[in-house]
Amino acid sequence: MSAGGLRALQEAFARAVLDGDPDPVAAFIEPGGEEAKRRLAIYGRAVTANLVGALRGAHPVVLRLVGDAYFHEAASRYARADPPRSGDLNRFGSGFGAFLEGYEPAAAMPWLADVARLEWACHEASMAGDGEPLDFEALAHVPLEAQGELRFSFHPSVSVVKSAWPILAIWEANQPDREGTPDRDVGEDTVLVWRESGTVRAVALSAREVAFIEALASGLGLDEAAGEPDWDLPAFLEQLASHGVLGAFRREIPGGPPPISP
């Protein structure tokens, strides 16, 4: 092979398999012509099966909603348009929701893209780090007057997915133990996703709860994040803490950084 020929071969191979142009690489393959294209097609099918398979694994609800054939077509188009950047196919699919949003044949299912986004958040939650657990004992020792200044981090698996559609109801109805009919067909669901004891969970949040979580995540202390005292913050905080949503906390020292010890 001429020097540099391997690059030409690999680029042509990728063009054949991902871009549907088998002619350039056929010249590298014995015995050329139609037989070369037939052999290349084995790889074309394998690549599609592997990439679609990765998307199926991460999007079981979308798969159930649209069925095998529809999913295969949508997923293989996405895979060719935006192939994996990482060899770790568990990381492939972060853009599938955005792809479905612009996917003309899915226009009649405007919620589908957000369901895919919710599934991706769940998939990522399953792979997130284990994080530092909340130290309940240390928390119990924080004096009452200092509690409002506490800053919390979240478990690494936590994310929030917002939708104009009842995506949580759709997602719940299409879990393996459900028959597929959502409990409600309206909602602008904002969903908290996290992993608790190895299991990924998703629950709906109220507008107040979302605002609080976002404020806490931006680094505000409890009091500031809570806003008006017209809701049951202690109860919500207790829920977050007991289900492993919150991670480590720290006490903010009023008036700037703590003094440096001599």
Binding site: M1, E11, F13, A14, L18, F28, G87
Partner: peptide
């Protein structure tokens, strides 16, 4: 992998 795209398959090399 080529050009930043991963094909997700064990593709053969020419033995050269």
């Amino acid at each position: 992998r080529i050009g930043g795209r991963n094909l997700g398959e064990l593709l053969p090399l020419p033995y050269s």
